[in-house]
């Protein structure tokens, strides 16, 4: 299936943009309700809810972004690749809200406590590392930046998403008490997505070796 680029630009991209913004718009709406003392979906611990909700969505968008290339190849839908950058930037946006929620709502700008957490609590150290590593990816996401850093280096930077996704998963597993199902489900999905990359990599390498054998 192939959709023309103007149609993607004019209709599909705004539609997907709106869809991906929806969870955040909903959250902002609920906080508005909360502040005005109205019934809302934030539950009995709005700060905890917000931390978890934004963390979950950031992780989902990371996994969604990682799923695009394999899906596009396996289903022969190259159009999907047009949405990879958007998925990545949304992951970064939700991760930023997640961090902001932790700083502003959970710790209420208690910087000593925040700094202590980042240094002392392994799961937060990992989250902070993941977030920091995401920044270069977000910064180099524009076409202009791709040209400026060069395709090769750009690829190298953006492959950082693999270790980042692993860091985030460990962050998630460590944060939950006991052995819980949800992080394991996300872990299984991530394993599939990363295994795909490994499989492609080894196949390419094998193919390369074969051609080399032939030529000698």
């Amino acid at each position: 299936m192939k959709i023309s680029v103007p149609i993607i630009r004019r209709y599909l991209k705004p539609a997907v943009f709106l869809a991906l913004s929806w969870p955040l718009a909903w959250l902002v709406w609920q906080w508005g309700q909360f502040i005005h003392g109205q019934p809302n979906g934030l539950g009995f611990n709005p700060q905890e809810f917000t931390n978890r909700y934004t963390g979950d969505w950031a992780l989902r968008y990371i996994l969604g972004g990682l799923a695009i290339t394999p899906l596009a190849r396996l289903t022969h839908t190259p159009t999907l690749v047009h949405f990879r950058r958007m998925a990545g930037l949304f992951a970064f946006a939700y991760a930023s809200v997640h961090l902001t929620s932790y700083i502003a709502l959970d710790q209420i700008f208690n910087w000593t406590e925040i700094w202590n957490d980042i240094l002392k609590r392994t799961f937060i150290t990992l989250g902070m590392t993941a977030f920091t590593l995401l920044i270069p990816l977000a910064v180099t996401s524009t076409n202009k930046m791709v040209k400026r850093v060069g395709a090769k280096r750009w690829l190298w930077i953006h492959r950082m998403i693999y270790p980042i996704s692993i860091l985030v998963l460990i962050h998630f597993i460590m944060m939950r008490k006991g052995t819980q199902l949800e992080p394991l489900v996300y872990g299984a999905i991530l394993t599939v997505l990363l295994s795909y990359r490994l499989a492609v990599y080894f196949k390419k390498k094998a193919g390369f070796r074969r051609t080399r054998h032939k030529s000698t």
Partner: peptide
């Protein structure tokens, strides 16, 4: 005495905003 993953110095009373 902190929990290894978070500080126990403060708490959020359910229904209150600040710790």
């Amino acid at each position: 005495v902190d929990h290894p993953r978070w500080s126990q110095a403060t708490e959020r009373r359910i229904g209150e905003f600040r710790r």
